[in-house]
Design a protein around this nucleic acid. Structure first.
Length: 421
RNA sequence: GUGGGUGUAGCUCAGCUGGUUAGAGUGCCGGGUUGUGGCCCCGGAGGUCGAGGGUUCAAAUCCCUUCACUCACCCCA
């Protein structure tokens, strides 16, 4: 029989890995809750229109990367390629803005984009996403970034580079867009093929280009930051001032642009050297027009998305470092002993003790081997002899010392050991 | 969508310019101790050599096609 494999770009997260994911998720939940963020769980499937309007019709994501299908012939649905659009949709749909002027939300789960898989890029990938709705204060920006950096430090990731930029608002950005388009039009011939295309679709993205020639052309190009209106300039300066006050190191990268249309003003990115080409571990920014664009009131927002696969792959934890090891292994020899052992084992388990047992009926030697391999602290041996006397042998696997213990005292004894360990 | 690299045991890999029953390490199972783990020793199971076609007396090895994985472009978390 031919085996059926997973879909291209869709990965299984095996138990050894899953432990790391759990650690990251737990840490995030704890930190988010002390900053006042509450979890929201959202559908994976949304109406296609949501992403077209939210992310932008001309973006690569919407143009060629979405998993979209016609549902029963009457409606286009899309597997969410990112989380923010869904969060805002729910925020508007349930009028969360009416209950509280500032709403802080987080969510985590799978996203889907149909790209060619490579290191750090999969077709199903996972994000941890946090958003603040209802505040356009620059301190909110700084606070969100501060929390994010704190989370990454707590996870042991100290060497990520934080870059920030301001994209301006809907008042000042068009002027820059015009200026850069004019500037580049004169030099179209000097740009790479991709950039000549970008010039017409999304000129700001030329800044992202890795081709040397393009970067040379850009050296004398107008700078986004010089085009900011007074309000945006003040805003950006206060973001920087607050980050400095909080002791969060950053650098301003005036060439950093984002791939989603909804971003305004503050944008930021955390990158690593250790991941190859897909070096962005976190991306985020302000989206002050998005709520209104999606049919809600005029409410400001800012958020970020952490790439889980990229983050987890940087974790220095040993594979088994977080794996639980049984406190007790029960080696049972013979049918009567197996039944008795199963009862003991499961009674311990419901007391919260991780005990392991083998029903295979293998030799004591092979059961001992297994106990050792699992890293058990103690092994309880129950055979015919023990059944006759109603007394089991308890072996300490570290010291190799062994004591006899009567059946009716095992449970209390092991519970006591558990308290000490 | 475009390029490059790689596909041999569960895992990591060796296999020279084609040559006989395709190997190692590790893991798994068993034995050395008829009821005692780790270290050591011995044995065993496990492979359509990614798939299909071609060249040849002979193909894991050479050629073609195809698929998968992977890295990079692109894109982004």
């Amino acid at each position: 029989m031919e085996i059926i494999t997973a879909v291209r770009g869709f990965k299984d997260i095996l138990p050894g890995e899953a432990v790391k994911w759990h650690f990251v998720e737990q840490t995030a939940r704890t930190i988010f809750s002390s900053f006042g963020f509450r979890e929201i769980r959202l559908p994976l499937l949304e109406k296609t229109e949501l992403f077209k309007r939210g992310i932008g019709e001309a973006t690569d994501i919407v143009e060629k990367e979405m998993y979209t299908f016609l549902d029963k012939g009457d409606e286009y649905l899309t597997m969410r390629p990112e989380a923010t659009a869904g969060v805002i949709r729910a925020y508007i749909e349930h009028s969360l803005f009416a209950a509280d002027p500032v709403v802080k939300l987080f969510t985590m789960g799978p996203m889907f984009r149909r790209e060619r898989p490579q290191k750090g890029r999969y077709r199903q990938f996972h994000q941890i996403d946090a958003e603040v709705l209802g505040s356009d204060d620059p301190q909110t920006d700084a606070e969100l970034i501060f929390m994010l950096v704190h989370l990454l430090h707590t996870l042991g990731l100290m060497s990520l580079k934080l870059e920030i930029n301001s994209l301006g608002c809907r008042d000042c950005r068009p002027a820059f867009r015009t200026a850069i388009t004019e500037f580049l039009s004169g030099k179209e011939g000097e740009l790479c093929g991709d950039c000549q295309r970008r010039l017409h679709t999304n000129p700001l993205r030329v800044f992202d280009c890795k081709v040397k020639e393009c970067q040379q052309v850009l050296a004398s190009a107008p700078r986004l930051l010089d085009f900011l209106c007074d309000a945006c300039r003040d805003h950006f300066e206060e973001v920087q001032g607050t980050l400095t006050l909080y002791g969060t190191p950053f650098s301003v990268n005036s060439r950093m642009v984002r791939g989603l249309d909804y971003y305004t003003r503050t944008t930021f990115e955390l990158t690593t050297e250790s991941l190859g080409a897909q070096n962005a571990v976190v991306g985020g920014g302000r989206f002050d027009g998005l709520v209104k664009d999606l049919g809600g009131p005029e409410i400001a927002g800012i958020g970020f998305a952490i790439g889980m696969e990229r983050l987890v792959s940087m974790l220095a934890l040993a594979d088994d470092g977080l794996d639980q090891r049984p406190l007790l292994y029960i080696a049972a020899l013979g049918d009567g002993a197996k039944k008795k052992s199963g009862l003991i084992c499961n009674r311990l388990r419901i007391k919260g003790i991780y005990a392991e047992i083998d029903y295979s009926g293998k030799s004591l030697k092979s059961q001992m081997k297994r106990a050792d391999k699992l890293g058990c602290r103690y092994t309880l041996i129950v055979g015919d002899r023990e059944m006759d006397e109603q007394i089991a042998e308890l072996r300490d696997m570290r010291s190799s010392s062994q004591i006899k213990i009567s059946f009716d005292k095992i449970e209390d004894y092991v519970i006591n050991i558990a308290k000490e360990n």
